Computed example of a mutant assay.
Amino acid sequence: MWLSEDENQLRRDLQGVASDLRWSAVELLRIAEQLRLAGNDVDAQATQKLCELFQGDEERLAGYAEEVKAKVIRRTKAH
């Protein structure tokens, strides 16, 4: 199935934000490890929680992008 230009843009946007969240989570993991090594376990745990939230959001957005591809979610121009 072919996607419309608007649907392709929506899919690219969802994939882009999901990718940003993935790389942000990787960076947060690095920061959490540095905090842990510095003896700041409280902030390391808080950072780890943020990372987990980002990872969940990334998975959800990637799933939405796949739904756009399968035409379960569609974007149409507003009139």
Rank of each mutant, 00 (worst) to 15 (best):
S19V: 13
R22G: 08
S4Q: 03
T47H: 04
E5Y: 11
A70T: 10
K49P: 06
K77S: 06
E33I: 11
A25W: 00
S19W: 03
T76C: 03
E27L: 08
G63W: 08
H79M: 00
L53T: 15
E58N: 09
S4D: 04
E66K: 14
E67K: 10
D13A: 12
C51G: 15
A25K: 02
C51K: 13
K71E: 01
N40A: 01
E58R: 13
R60N: 09
E58Y: 09
K71H: 09
R22K: 12
W23I: 14
A25R: 01
V26S: 07
F54S: 02
L28G: 13
L29Q: 15
D57K: 15
D43K: 05
D57L: 15
R30P: 03
I31D: 00
K69D: 00
L53H: 15
K69R: 08
D20T: 11
Q48W: 04
S24I: 12
M1C: 05
D41I: 09
V17P: 04
G39E: 05
H79I: 05
R12N: 03
R75A: 10
I31S: 00
Q55I: 11
G63R: 09
A46L: 06
E7P: 07
R75H: 05
T47Y: 00
E58A: 13
D6N: 14
D20P: 07
C51L: 11
E59A: 15
L50M: 11
A46M: 05
D57Q: 13
R74M: 00
R75I: 02
K77H: 06
Q45S: 08
R22Y: 11
E59P: 05
G16N: 11
R22S: 12
V72M: 01
E67Y: 06
L14V: 06
E33Y: 14
A38N: 14
Q45R: 05
E67G: 07
D57C: 07
I31Y: 10
C51E: 05
E66N: 12
A18C: 04
V68K: 01
L61M: 03
A25M: 01
A38T: 08
A62Y: 15
K49F: 07
N8P: 01
L3Q: 03
M1R: 08
A78I: 12
S24W: 09
W23E: 05
H79N: 12
Q34W: 00
H79D: 08
E58S: 10
T47P: 12
A38C: 05
L37N: 11
G16E: 07
T76D: 00
A78M: 07
D43R: 03
A65V: 14
V68N: 02
D41R: 10
E33D: 13
R74G: 00
N8R: 09
L10V: 04
D57A: 04
Q34C: 10
E66V: 11
H79F: 10
L28D: 09
E52Q: 13
G63L: 02
W2I: 08
E27W: 08
A46S: 06
A44P: 05
V17K: 03
